[in-house]
Design a protein around this nucleic acid. Structure first.
Lengths: 150, 150
DNA sequence: CGCTATTACATGCAAACGCATACAACTCTG
DNA sequence: CAGAGTTGTATGCGTTTGCATGTAATAGCG
């Protein structure tokens, strides 16, 4: 073995985390709550529902997603056309656009969110103990925050 | 709060795991080893390099990926055109197609894989301790295997 | 056996994506 | 405070994706 032992741990953990995500996501995508709206679009609504001022720049939103900036721009167009999201110019920076949920968008997000919570629990609820879930959450969060604060 | 406490744990863990995956993946996609070949295509090569008989049906391969069956069919076409993968009819089932890495494909996979291992370690290696990485790996694997054996 | 149902993969087509780039607004420097 | 560089978003365009469906082979059932 030509690789430092320390490399094995981080790589094995990433590999396992990634495969787990793929496996869970494959099942989630099949659930009925994502028939009308895609899971990527729901993720945008979800992120908007969580952001402090309940509005967010396109680029700030994009930082939390895997899709590219142009893709998000066009997805926002579609969500706006569906009446779920509204665009408004940022008063403090004329280049920027602030996105926020419409009343209908907030309603849809909550509705899908509720079903989603049930779906996740039904799918993985019995896979780990409460303590194990808590540990998984802590380690995942620690991993994420470490990267975000590089 | 109208939700059973037990639901909170599994949902919070999934949410944290998913966000961690997004954050890591965003950085990985920028790394130079995925300039020539996309990360989704690398994942196909990687899976092929790991499968027992070093060949796999399209549908078996697809079970480990997030993309749809038609998308994988066409991605395989492209990988074949690049000389990285070969298709052959399954002798035991005339409907099926067996995919395997060509020598060039195996070479490319190993080469990118080596860089990928370094990239992951550089990205997340200092985020957790060896014990924490081991725990994250175990819990992720337990989560995945639980779903796969439903 | 023969007939229907199912499984495995491929293909037509519209939607969505990413890359490169354009454009406009802000910032910074001399 | 002008002019170059940077940042935030949108758009042109070729590629990739997914859905619905087609085709061929197998399985299951009477």
């Amino acid at each position: 073995m030509h690789r430092p032992a320390s490399m094995q741990f981080s790589n094995a953990a990433w590999e396992a985390l990634f495969r787990a995500q793929v496996t869970v996501m494959r099942e989630i995508q099949k659930l009925p709550e994502f028939k009308e709206i895609g899971i990527r679009e729901y993720d945008v609504l979800f992120n908007l529902s969580r952001c402090p001022a309940s509005s967010s720049r396109l680029s700030d939103l994009n930082a939390h997603l895997l899709i590219s900036q142009p893709s998000l721009s066009r997805m926002a167009e579609r969500l706006e056309a569906k009446g779920l999201v509204s665009r408004a110019p940022d008063p403090t920076d004329q280049r920027a656009v602030l996105f926020s949920l419409t009343a209908k968008g907030a309603e849809v997000q909550k509705s899908i969110g509720r079903e989603h919570v049930k779906g996740i629990h039904a799918l993985i609820g019995s896979a780990l103990s409460a303590e194990e879930f808590a540990t998984l959450r802590e380690l995942s969060t620690k991993l994420r925050t470490h990267i975000e604060s590089r």
